[in-house]
């Protein structure tokens, strides 16, 4: 099928986004102010307003385009778009929703693996100890992303400045934090099943 033509196949894509995010996609009238002010557009495959447009159209082949895009992982949540949107449409939040959906569907862009690796390491650390320790985070991330040598020159300074600690601090309530993680993951999974 043509890469530039979409059919009018009905899809649940639009409804699913709206259900998760408490967003009304029809609110967007495609003025493009989000794209005009986005700091990351130079690195994106689709401009933010194009992502919104494809979500509005909601056709099946667009689900893969959107959830598999680089754009959703390059968004740094600076919220410039949401702040300036004349329709009060929370694009930054839409990006959160799309990342969540992208991960669940296993559609995440290959280039996003670095970012996802970072998030994963981060969350694992917090889940285990209740807090984040950036040294294990950096090490763990470097192992996951296989990007072993960048920034190594900076570590000695950070260690001598006592900016990196080797041993993570563990909070007393870490069981409670672990439980919060478990419950949140379970509820998201349940919501996803409910959709299907």
């Amino acid at each position: 099928m043509s890469n530039k033509t979409v059919s009018d196949t009905a899809s649940s894509f639009t409804a699913e986004i709206e259900g998760r995010g408490r967003l009304r996609l029809a609110d967007c009238y495609q003025c493009g102010k989000c794209s005009a002010g986005c700091p990351m557009v130079d690195y994106m495959d689709y401009l933010p307003h194009q992502i919104v447009r494809m979500c509005q159209m909601g056709e099946d082949s667009l689900r893969e385009k959107v959830l598999g895009s680089r754009t959703i992982w390059l968004c740094v949540s600076c919220e410039t778009c949401s702040t300036r949107c004349p329709k009060d449409f929370d694009i930054a939040h839409l990006m959160d929703v799309l990342r969540e959906m992208s991960l669940e569907a296993g559609l995440q862009h290959a280039d996003a693996s670095n970012i996802i690796a970072f998030h994963k390491t981060f969350k694992n650390g917090v889940e285990k100890t209740g807090r984040l320790n950036e040294f294990p985070l950096a090490i763990g991330y470097k192992l996951r992303s296989m990007d072993l040598f960048s920034d190594v020159t900076k570590f000695p300074k950070m260690v001598t400045a006592r900016k990196l600690r080797f041993l993570p601090h563990k909070i007393k309530g870490r069981d409670k934090v672990k439980k919060i993680f478990a419950k949140c993951e379970a509820r998201i999974r349940a919501k996803k099943r409910g959709k299907k």
Partner: peptide
Amino acid sequence: GRVSKIYEENGKLIVKGVDTLSGLT
């Protein structure tokens, strides 16, 4: 498309906008 920001630099007003028809900022 709309304009997101205008600021001054070297006596010029830098206008940051978008053209949604071409998909270019």
